[in-house]
Each structure stands twice: as structure tokens, then as C-alpha cells.
Design a binder for these strands. Structure first.
Lengths: 218, 218
DNA sequence: AATTTTATTTAGATTTATCTAACTTTATTA
DNA sequence: TAATAAAGTTAGATAAATCTAAATAAAATT
């Protein structure tokens, strides 16, 4: 059994792995978990000891199969509870995250099984994120190029199809980084460039650039 | 805010107060909470510091108004979750206690408000125990222990003062479930066990068991 | 390549909740 | 009432999760 805190670390590592598809850095974890890098290092040693992560000093961590399974199960619980809160208790989709952060740590496989059944074995939560089934399997949401978003559609940047330094530097500059939430305002007919709302700031990006950014719609 | 552990101590003190209607002893708490008396003493100092209990060395503790309000709120959450588990997720009444022990510590007043509304502001849980409303008020029905019924007196099972799975399973087995009508035939002087008429069948039940069954006389 | 900056780790404390062992107080009983 | 038993407390340790400050490693820059 993992503690409440260990579960949170695993969950955060899992989410950060998904964005970078590689190893996760100490500081990135510290940022997400609102703690100090020194505390993260301590916990990394503990999780490595328990065979939940692969940890190499100064190099960052990856989840082991065991760690990944644990993390996916927490994500499953979180998303089932979010859906329950919205569908059954009439919460709005922006009110449920904090509550689900607590509920996800309640440890009763039977409870989750029954909740899943009650909700009709749903495949996605109120934010459009996939809900893993009890074996940890889930549909990975279809990705779409930023250039193909329709006006008013929103999404999260989950990848790029161009890896040149100049391209990535440019993305950093305009704050179009992995995990950023973006809303399409309109496609300019003249040149195919797109007007976007990037974290509440309106920006225009060329078709060339927009076509190399992969989004998951939300 | 109280920690998970502090909440459990308050809840236990509350339940033990109800039974003894007076102060609660260190060892009684240690027994219930499955810890050592020394640990209880440590916690008593802490709760007294926080003005949640009145603590006099060697003399036991009582809840302050603040401590009582906190304890009643935990009981409210516990019982609402138990009812939810039985009514909505189709659990049996003997399966829900352990799960509710965890759910009761989830801290979201809005969640509990919505759950209460969803359940229709119920007044009692699956074991017949009253559910405090959001102000901490609840009906305490005049209850009598089954072991105290007089010969020929009849009553309805409305609650139990012991929630272990083995006890509840036993009650199911002998059909001494909530709502069951029971008539006292006689108390056996030798061992205090009772001869009962349970739904037209004569059965003998130990004093131990009979003392944990709460009745409303009819 | 040397220097500076950033990222990470180590060492040593702190807090919470627990423990054991020894001691003290209160209750019981002979 | 003196001895014994039971109940409760204190002192000192331990484990989990955190922290600050200092040290070290890796990356970036001049």
C-alpha cells in the first residue's frame, strides 16, 4: 500500500511523463506538488526503493510498470469521482477537481467497481479525459492539429510534429508550450494563420506553425 | 482544521460519551482506536490545547461544545455516506462501515450538502442511526436495548450499537434486521440470554448480542 | 575552456503520530 | 490501612514527510 503522499507523487509523475514522453525532472515535480526539490529527492529515493520508479541521480525519473499501474488506478478513481460529482450531484465541471483530489485516495476497490457500474462504465470524464477501465486500459484521445481546431473549440497542447530548435524556441517565446490550454478564435482565410487565446492572451500564429502543434480537445 | 487522526479521536470520544453519558477514560479510547494509552494521553493534550476537549489528568475527558460540533459533523458525514452506499451503490448494510470510515474524512462541506440533498435529507442511516442535519441537530428516538425489554413487550429493531461485520452478518443470519418486529418471551436468569419471538419464530440470543440491539417499543 | 547559472542532492532539523519502558496516581482488596 | 492491581502519564525513540542551508553536478554562456 502506498501512502496518500506517495500516491500524489506517482500521479504527478504520470501526468508529467505523458507530456514529455520521457523522464521527469525533480524541479518539475516540485513545482506541481508545491514542495521543495529537496523533498522530491527524498521521495524519489523512497519510491525507487519500492520499485515504483526508476531513479538515476541528477537524471530524473521514469515510472516502472508497477508505478504506472498504480498511477493509472489513481487517475481512474479521480475521473470516476469527477463524473459522479457532475452527473449525480449536479456539480459544474470546474468545481470538481479539488474534491476528486481527496476522493481519489479512498481505498476500496469494491467501491470503485460499484461506482463504475453505477455510472455505466463511462469512457471519459467531464473534461473529456479518458477513464481507464479496471485493468488500466483506456482509449487515448484522438489528437488533432491546432490548425484544424474549429472556432470556439478548446484544447491542450500535447505534442509537436517538428523538433527543430528554432521552432521549439519560438513556441516557448509565445508561451505555446506543452500542457498549455488554447482556444481557437478564428482561422484567417487570407493566409491560413490562426487567431488564438493562449492562457487569456490573444495571439496570431502562422498556418505553418499551427500545423505542427498537436492538440487534445477539451 | 483537524487532522484525519484528530477527527478519529473526537469521533471515538463522542461515541463513548454517548454510552457512558460522562467522561471518557484513556484506556477506553485506546481500546477503540487500537492504540496505546500513552498515545492517547499525547493526543488528549493536543486536543485540549485546541479547546476540543476538557482534559483533567488521570480523570478522563469530555468534549467541549466545539469538539462536540466537530464530532457530530463527522458522524453526519459517515452516516450520509453509508446511506449513499446502500441506496445508490447497492451495498449491503454490513459492507459499508469500513468504506464510510474513509469517506467521512473527505473535507468538502459543499459535497456533503449536495449528497444530503441528493439523498432527500434523510433522518436515519441503514443501521437506523439518526443523521444529524447541517446544524448538528437530530432526533434521538427513545430507544431501549433489546436486553431490557420486559416479557411480552414488543418492539422494532431500529439500530445497533456495534458495527462489526461479524455482528451484522450474525443478525442477518438470525433475521434480526432493521425493522424486524420482536417480542420478548423471557430473560434466562442463568446467563442473561433472551428468548425471543422473531417474526413468529422462537429464538434464543445471548445477552451480549441483545445488549447491542436498539429497539423502539410498539 | 572558464565562469556563471540552474538543477539537484546532502546534511541536519522539525512536526505529527506513534511506540516502549519506567514511573505515578487512583482504585481495590485483604 | 497497607499492599496490590489497574489506570494513566512521562520520558525518550522512531518513522514519515517536510523544511532550510550548504554542497555538488549539469547546463548555458561568455
Amino acid at each position: 500500500m502506498e501512502s496518500y503522499t506517495e500516491e500524489n507523487y506517482l500521479k504527478v509523475i504520470y501526468h508529467l511523463s505523458n507530456l514529455t514522453t520521457g523522464t521527469v525532472q525533480t524541479n518539475a515535480i516540485a513545482d506541481k506538488i508545491q514542495t521543495r526539490p529537496a523533498s522530491v529527492t527524498d521521495m524519489m529515493k523512497k519510491l525507487a526503493e519500492k520499485q515504483l520508479i526508476n531513479y538515476v541521480k541528477y537524471q530524473g525519473v521514469t515510472l516502472t510498470e508497477k508505478g504506472k499501474a498504480t498511477a493509472v488506478n489513481i487517475v481512474r478513481k479521480h475521473r470516476l469521482w469527477e463524473l459522479f460529482l457532475v452527473n449525480t450531484l449536479n456539480f459544474k465541471w470546474d468545481e470538481v477537481h479539488e474534491i476528486a483530489e481527496e476522493l481519489e485516495h479512498v481505498n476500496s476497490p469494491l467501491l470503485i467497481e460499484r461506482l463504475d457500474e453505477y455510472l455505466g462504465y463511462p469512457k471519459s470524464d467531464p473534461h473529456g479525459d479518458p477513464i481507464p477501465d479496471k485493468n488500466g486500459n483506456f482509449d487515448s484521445p484522438a489528437l488533432i492539429k491546432l490548425s484544424k481546431l474549429k472556432p470556439a473549440e478548446k484544447g491542450i497542447v500535447v505534442g509537436v510534429s517538428e523538433h527543430s530548435s528554432s521552432f521549439l524556441k519560438y513556441l516557448d517565446k509565445i508561451k505555446l508550450t506543452l500542457g498549455t490550454s488554447v482556444e481557437m478564435i478564428e482561422v484567417i482565410e487570407f493566409d491560413g494563420s490562426v487567431d488564438l487565446l493562449i492562457e487569456d492572451t490573444r495571439k496570431n500564429v502562422s498556418r505553418e506553425v499551427a500545423s505542427h502543434i498537436l492538440m487534445r480537445t477539451t
